[in-house]
Design a protein around this nucleic acid. Structure first.
Length: 922
RNA sequence: AGGACUAUAGCUCAGUUGGUUAGAGCGCUACCUUGACAUGGUAGAGGUCCCCAGUUCGAAUCUGGGUAGUCCUACCA
């Protein structure tokens, strides 16, 4: 074995072996356990957040596989309609063409080509992360089977009147030329202006003043509204104004939606270009005048002067024109929320179009109930509130997208505009008795990607056919996801699955935090702070990282900024840490918080942990290979106190880990493992094994017992850690397992260790605790007195009881080795003790004679420090116990505990003072 | 505007039903290449548990009120 752990060599080797051997597939035995991967965008690539999520799922999957479950981790990707279409359109643009020149079919072919070309990135990354996905069942949302499911769902919902088509205001993205759902619009505060315009009364009796942030929409105004109880304007209600620039006569209406305090208290109403105005328009039966086209330029409904102008140019022009007419009263600076498309970044227009909608309100009812009654549980539970808040006020879901890449809506129109929904044109004709003379054209639009993702848990398993997989693995066990897609995806899956399967899609939703960079910033391409998990696994030099982060940047200024930040944050590039270290880092960060700041510093510590495991294994193998490790039946071996102690600690750790995993607390699980392996097994047990193995006096049975424990505890620890660190554990296990009497081709399919409480030996624990304290006592004196580590000491023990004396005898070899002692002497008579530095273990005093080693002042200073510390503690306890109400009201056991503590510390204090006096007397 | 979450060591974070001497990793200081490991060992320093009030014998923990930050939802043109 190499002296240091080299992850690169072993990772791909093991992954290939596992995959080829078919270990990732369900075993077909045991109770089913399944997780459906949140499908990543097939043409995208995984970032740190994905890596985190995959790591958690893989740990759950590997853990349950080892506990004997029939385990399925369903893999797949989605087609990411808008994102993918955008990428391909950009490619076309670079070649000086566009999708319209290409035509729909040719364009879709291009997208498929791109999918084939780039689709490997994700799956490659997933493999590098060690994800034990069942690749044989890989799905893609645009595959024929899944497309059939989408179609089936659409048609059934349409027939149940839960999907309808209607002309309404939608969020229109003028750059992408498609409607988007509410969730795809991000509203953020931006600086703007509030323009005050005078609208002259038709009667000629002056004017009223309206305030607006969007002057260009005035071309579509069809009313001015005031509050019904606003006395300032009461007399105007019912009159009309003559809309400037258009000359249209429009009414002044009263509606209590108007806020009297804001602006002038008069609101211009543009029902075709504002969601609130639209509602008001319906209440007052106002006409809708659409003044924009698909590009958000002014259309032919507007006065000629403005036609064809972009909305923002039109704004300037209109303001200028009104100013010229003397109708611009004033312009105030104003901060307002501007809605932008999350993909395109352009300002979204409320726009009147025909779209398809899902009646979300109806579907939401059972979906709310399923969480209320506990059929689905969120972890952490507080996310249920987020879910409820949204679901109880859910809006109908606009599912049509004016794109070419996606599931085409199975609806046909005749020339009269009648809609027929069905599987294909032929069935539509036959179902509706339409002969060949009727011209039918299919709806041009496709469905929102989330519409197909909403079917993910059951469509991946073969639905609408009632497959065996569906019966076995649905509902899935747990959904692992980030809170940012609770609405997008989780809620919609619950709605669709309950409706079509009459069962929940999953029993538990584990909501993890979002990975952010070291500054707490969200990782995003545009900020240039994304990290590819593979770069942490393999490492990357600075130049490559800079290039990767700035590639494809539209704005050179942005690229320069990103380059600077990257050079500052990673001056040396990124080291190769290996998958196991990366994964372990993820787990250590997986607590209940919402943000996970990924600090590169943390991963280094866990790489060191891997190295520690590696070297511990090296030590164990050096001592066990070719030796009798006591595995044979009837073997004569003897377990020492240390053996019994570490075996017990392993059981306790196993119990802790099991509990943590059951609660999805991978931070606690990983910490328990780390602590056990490093701070107990390596720091103490391996050290305690040395005096036995290297002692010529020790019996063969004792040595066998030690080797047996070394190897068995290591072997079990590897199994325990395997779900979190698959590669290093497999690599080591292959060599270790046979020595521990285990057989099997892979650690992956070995039983997960289960804690055996009966193997916890409290007597051994107490003994080792004593031993550790004595060793630490000597070391502390050594450290603080600056006694060279190489200097072997002669120490004495005094004031102990028979138990201490026995322990001294039993543990003498360990003490000598670990505390580097020349000799240990038991003092019956304290009087005869030489002047010494001392440490206490209970009542037992450890004496390190000072002659030639320790100077008086240093020891006095040390004692003074101890006395001060103890004194503080003592007075606190005394205070507590002298408080009558504490003694009266606190539980008896708490009081007793305090009393006991007091007695102990008083005794210790007395010893320290005596010692202080003795030293002072020198 | 409503709601949620967060605030603990220089940094990143744990801290169960109130009962502790408040922990871990990283970083820091000193010493050490001893036969698994310098990606290491040993010892150590470092905290007003955001602030105020309350409940309680007892509060990092519970309640109320502040402050700061993050996020979500809804929005006033």
């Amino acid at each position: 074995m190499d002296k240091t752990f080299q992850p690169a060599d072993i990772e791909t080797r093991w992954y290939t072996t596992w995959e080829n051997a078919g270990y990732f597939a369900p075993s077909g035995e045991g109770s089913p356990y399944s997780i459906m991967i949140p499908p990543p965008n097939v043409t995208g690539s995984l970032h740190m957040g994905h890596g985190f999520q995959e790591a958690i799922m893989d740990a759950l999957i590997r853990y349950h596989r080892m506990t004997g479950c029939n385990t399925l981790w369903q893999v797949g990707t989605d087609h990411a309609g808008i994102a993918t279409q955008m990428v391909v359109e950009r490619q076309l643009e670079a070649r000086g063409t566009n999708r319209h020149e290409l035509g729909r079919d040719a364009f879709i072919d291009k997208v498929w080509e791109w999918k084939e070309e780039s689709g490997g990135t994700i799956t490659r990354q997933l493999r590098r992360l060690g994800s034990s996905l069942d690749w044989s069942r890989e799905r893609f949302t645009m595959d024929p089977g899944m497309s059939a499911a989408v179609q089936e769902v659409f048609i059934r919902l349409y027939r149940e009147k839960l999907i309808y088509r209607g002309q309404r205001l939608v969020n229109w993205d003028p750059a992408l030329h498609t409607a988007v759902s509410d969730l795809e619009v991000i509203s953020e505060e931006e600086k703007g202006h509030l323009w005050h315009f005078r609208y002259p009364l038709t009667s000629g009796d002056g004017h009223l003043t309206v305030a607006t942030t969007r002057p260009e929409t005035m071309l579509g105004d069809t009313a001015v509204a005031v509050h019904p109880e606003d006395e300032r304007y009461a007399h105007l209600v019912g009159q009309t104004i003559t809309l400037p620039l258009t000359g249209r006569e429009i009414p002044v209406i009263a509606d209590d939606y108007v806020d009297r305090e804001f602006g002038t208290g008069c609101v211009k109403i543009t029902p075709a270009h504002d969601f609130n105005d639209y509602e008001m328009g319906r209440r007052h039966d106002l006409p809708l005048i659409n003044i924009l086209d698909d590009d958000a330029a002014i259309n032919e409904q507007a006065p000629e002067a403005y036609r064809g102008m972009d909305r923002f140019d039109a704004r300037k022009q209109i303001v200028a024109d009104l100013d010229e007419l003397g109708l611009l009263e004033k312009v105030d600076d104003h901060t307002l929320k501007v809605p932008r498309g999350d993909r395109s970044g352009v300002v979204i227009e409320p726009y009147l179009t025909d779209q398809w909608y899902v009646d979300a309100r109806t579907l939401a009812k059972p979906a709310i109930a399923a969480v209320e009654n506990g059929d689905i549980q969120f972890v952490p539970k507080q996310w249920e509130n987020t879910y409820f808040a949204w679901m109880r006020d859910i809006q109908d879901w606009c599912i049509s997208r004016q794109l070419w890449w996606g599931h085409r809506i199975p609806a046909w129109y005749d020339e009269a505009g009648n809609v027929y929904v069905g599987n294909d044109e032929a069935s539509v004709r036959s179902e509706n008795n339409l002969d060949a003379s009727v011209v039918l054209t299919q709806d041009e639009d496709v469905l929102d990607t989330w519409f197909s993702s909403a079917l993910w848990t059951f469509s991946t398993l073969g639905w609408p056919e009632e497959t065996k997989d569906l019966a076995t693995f649905h509902p899935s066990s747990v959904l692992v996801t980030g809170f940012d897609i609770i609405f997008f995806w989780v809620a919609r899956m619950i709605m669709m699955t309950l409706h079509f399967r009459d069962e929940v899609p999953f029993h538990t939703v584990y909501v993890h935090g979002l990975v952010r960079d070291a500054e707490g910033q969200k990782m995003s391409k545009s900020k240039g702070n994304v990290l590819d998990p593979i770069d942490l696994i393999d490492g990357i030099d600075l130049e490559s990282l800079v290039q990767k982060r700035t590639a494809g940047m539209m704005q050179p200024k942005m690229a320069a900024r990103i380059e600077k930040a990257t050079r500052k944050q990673f001056p040396e590039g990124i080291d190769a840490y290996g998958t196991d270290a990366l994964r372990f880092t993820y787990y250590s960060l997986a607590s209940t918080g919402r943000d996970i700041k990924f600090d590169i510093g943390r991963i280094e510590g866990f790489r060191n942990f891997c190295n520690k495991i590696w070297n511990a294994a090296r030590y164990v193998l050096m001592n066990c290979e070719g030796e009798d490790c006591g595995q044979d039946a009837g073997s004569d071996f003897e377990l020492s106190l240390a053996d019994r102690w570490i075996i017990g600690r392993l059981q306790e750790t196993e119990a802790e880990v099991a509990k943590a995993i059951a609660q999805y607390r991978f931070d606690l699980a990983s910490q328990a493992m780390y602590e056990f392996v490093w701070n107990e097994y390596c720091d103490w047990y391996l050290e305690l094994s040395k005096p036995v193995l290297w002692d010529d006096e020790a019996s063969d049975a004792a040595k066998r017992g030690t080797r047996r424990t070394l190897i068995r505890v290591l072997e079990a620890s590897l199994r325990m850690m395997h779900p979190l660190m698959p590669f290093i554990t497999e690599e080591i296990w292959q060599t270790v397992a046979p020595l521990a009497g285990k057989t099997g081709d892979t650690i992956m399919l070995q039983p997960y260790p289960v804690a055996d409480e009966s193997a916890v030996d409290n007597a051994a624990n107490a003994d080792i605790e004593w031993l550790k304290q004595v060793i630490v006592g000597v070391r502390t004196i050594r450290g603080e007195m600056n006694i060279p580590p190489g200097k072997a000491l002669d120490i004495m023990l005094s004031n102990g009881d028979d138990n201490d004396k026995d322990r001294m005898t039993i543990h003498a070899p360990a003490l000598r080795k670990l505390a580097k002692l020349e000799s240990i002497t038991w003092l019956e008579n304290t009087e005869s003790a030489p002047v010494s530095a001392t440490a206490l273990v209970g009542n037992l005093e450890i004496l390190v004679p000072m002659a030639g080693l320790i100077d008086k002042d240093a020891e006095l200073a040390r004692l003074g420090k101890e006395i001060e510390k103890l004194g503080k503690d003592l007075s606190r306890i005394e205070g507590k116990l002298s408080n009558a109400s504490f003694v009266d009201k606190a539980p008896a056991e708490v009081v007793a505990k305090e009393r006991e503590k007091l007695a102990e510390q008083q005794a210790a204090m007395e010893k320290l003072r005596e010692q202080e006096q003795r030293i002072q007397a020198i």
